[in-house]
Design a binder for these strands. Structure first.
Lengths: 404, 404
DNA sequence: AATAAGTTCGGTCACAGAACGAATTAATTG
DNA sequence: CAATTAATTCGTTCTGTGACCGAACTTATT
């Protein structure tokens, strides 16, 4: 229960930092106006931040009436964070500086042996990228790793992660912390995707937002009331188990959920095979549909029909303002247009449905978001506990562009 | 985003108040130990609270070694709040003092004319109760009204409230504030029910909790990550529209949701009629089932089977630790036992399902919870923005017992 | 004698606010 | 047109003030 002794200082420092991050080069007088704190206080706080190496003088204003002002800016390379999006087939790694600029980005196929091999693979990738950009390891303060599955914070294991071997039995958090030598946060990849879209994508400023990723599996991430929803066992968003589509009481639905069995990759290929007799992969189904294949078209219709129901269930329970579709299947415009048409026919209230703008990089950007938020919080005082720091538009644009 | 000037004082004051509320009669030295603040500071804060009339001396300790201590306690009647649970058929009203003790409680059938009539009816009820208990109106600081439907805070109207006439077109919030002459909070009744269970019922201390009310309609309330989920348009929990049971693409499902049409009262009576040919009300179906009526038994099985699916959908999306069943149908043990048996057969992870302990008073207690929390926040400083203040067990027990 | 309660008396820290000096542009005047 | 004055804005210094802490001390009790 005991409060921190000097909470007010932290609050002020945080808002001064925020003004500097957003306001680019900014004078102390302007910060004072923005924050409502006195000029005196701003000078003190900025002096402190400058001494600790977080901000620096960058120039003077001119052209205005009155005395010129000294402007201050972030020291971009004062700290770095690592963002990792670990998928079943691909790993993406990014290095971001304090000013939220991506410094280096790399991607490779995931080591199929899983477990410690993947941890080592990522570690190598990170250190290579750091070396290439001459980023000293000491300045890396935090790593955020997105994984498919439900990370259990008490044991460090990742439950429900069938795609990466051993992650459900080893302490993944510890392994990463030992290998990288920095604090690590492990988070579900779809949760990071919502955070990413909420920060820089289609869900900016939307406090009630859902992200539905549809590909090999299904998953969803929810931001409600401005907070990321994780659930009791960090398994919120495991919508594959919704009782929609296949018979939920079938034995098999306890292993692979009913909803996943009717909308994910496997369901589409099977459905196409039962209609046409041909066994083709999902991308080919989309191609065939575009070429006028009736069976392929029917498969897309059917998939969208169930997906719309899944979206309706989320909307009924959580009432998000917007639902963003992602994942290899969810990103396809053929699916989006169908869902948009079908949703109003099975759900009465307005819900915006859109395709993910950040696409496959949503989770990576979400990892950066949560990491930068966390870093700013620990360094400059608590504000919003869950991620989300505001960025100036220029830097946001830079983040959205893929380096690789 | 200018901060409040003396935020730290508010924090400390709040925790001192909390210690006094929970610790019953307590000495300043004990408060100091509990809160971690110095004895000196506690003396100052308590002096302030005493001057403003919130706390008072009540006695001295004795029996211990050392000097006796002066003990302080809440001034119970320093402020009152009104809790209202407005249902389609019944209104419940309660008056609660600062120490969370219910002072008066009353219930009557809801005025069927709806609109202003209901507002006036409630106002009369409240003022009668206040007069009976000699509670001066000036000491009533806040009223919390639970309504069936989705209150729109911008217009003060209640959407999706078919059971009370005119509430979807008039400014209900304003009407109540004018009639009662105090600040009013209007909240969905099922949301209040979760808060109630979270505060004093089966969901105490559970940060991820769901409440499913099943009766004439269906609704759910969600607490996720410790926060009440309201959704973008305050329509979260309108689970009647989940695409489960009836065909969600049927025209009718846009008016009365597919799920509501398969599990609520109307569905049960219809199902029983189609099986047995007899037209009886829901309570009679339960009676018949108890007497061995196969048809009635089948109706219960079927209802529970779909309810279990609805519960599974909530669990898949939001991953609550516990789901509490309420409402006239949800409270029945025949339904609970069936759902408990069926859920593990359609959903793989552990979710506790229980019947509401507070029963039909859950919403009323939730209203008290949110009101007292709000009151403590505004008077003694911000802590938790959403309700939930902790209570000593004795007072909690008193609150749970119905006066009426 | 030991112990606990409560007060008094400094002292610190994070601010606010007023006053003031410094720097700059805009307007006015000889 | 240059010089002077006015108007502005930046940033510092100085003097509070409120919310705390800690040590020393008094008082009351077993």
């Amino acid at each position: 229960m005991s409060d921190l002794p000097h909470i007010s200082r932290q609050f002020s420092q945080r808002s001064v930092m925020e003004a500097i991050v957003q306001g680019g080069p900014i004078s102390r007088a302007s910060i004072s106006k923005q924050t409502g704190l006195s000029k005196q206080t701003i000078s003190e706080i900025v002096r402190g931040l400058e001494q600790e190496g977080w901000v620096q003088e960058t120039g003077r204003t001119s052209g205005h009436v009155g005395r010129t002002a000294v402007t201050y800016e972030l020291v971009h390379d004062a700290a770095y964070i690592v963002a990792v999006d670990l998928g079943g087939t691909k790993v993406r790694v990014a290095l971001t500086d304090l000013a939220c600029q991506i410094f280096a980005e790399a991607a490779t196929p995931t080591d199929p042996r899983g477990g410690q091999f993947v941890v080592d693979q990522i570690t190598t990738l990170v250190f290579q990228a750091a070396a290439r950009q001459r980023v000293p390891r000491k300045k890396i303060r935090l790593a955020v790793v997105g994984v498919p599955g439900a990370p259990d914070p008490s044991t460090g294991r990742i439950l429900l992660a069938p795609n990466i071997a051993d992650f459900d039995t080893m302490n993944v958090l510890d392994a990463f912390e030992k290998a990288l030598g920095v604090a690590v946060m492990v988070e579900n990849d779809v949760n990071l995707a919502v955070l990413g879209e909420n920060w820089l994508g289609q869900g900016q400023g939307i406090d009630n937002l859902a992200y539905v990723a549809l590909g090999t599996g299904v998953g969803s991430g929810l931001i409600l009331g401005g907070h990321l929803v994780r659930g009791a066992t960090h398994a919120a968003g495991e919508i594959g188990f919704m009782p929609i589509g296949a018979d939920p009481f079938a034995e098999e639905s306890l292993r692979t959920g009913a909803f996943e069995r009717t909308v994910a990759t496997h369901a589409m290929t099977e459905r196409y095979q039962s209609l046409s007799g041909k066994q083709v992969a999902v991308p080919a189904i989309f191609e065939n549909a575009a070429l006028g294949d009736k069976d392929a078209d029917a498969v897309l219709d059917e998939t969208a029909r169930y997906l719309a129901q899944g979206v309706a269930a989320i909307a009924a329970i959580a009432n998000p303002e917007k639902i963003i579709l992602g994942g290899s299947i969810g990103l396809r415009p053929e699916i989006l247009s169908r869902v948009k048409a079908l949703l109003p026919r099975c759900f009465p209230y307005l819900v915006t449905v859109e395709a993910s703008e950040l696409g496959s990089r949503a989770a990576l950007i979400g990892a950066a978001a949560i990491g930068l938020g966390q870093l700013h919080n620990t360094l400059f005082g608590v504000d919003a506990p869950d991620g989300r720091i505001s960025l100036p538009p220029t830097q946001a644009a830079a983040l959205k562009q893929a380096v690789l």
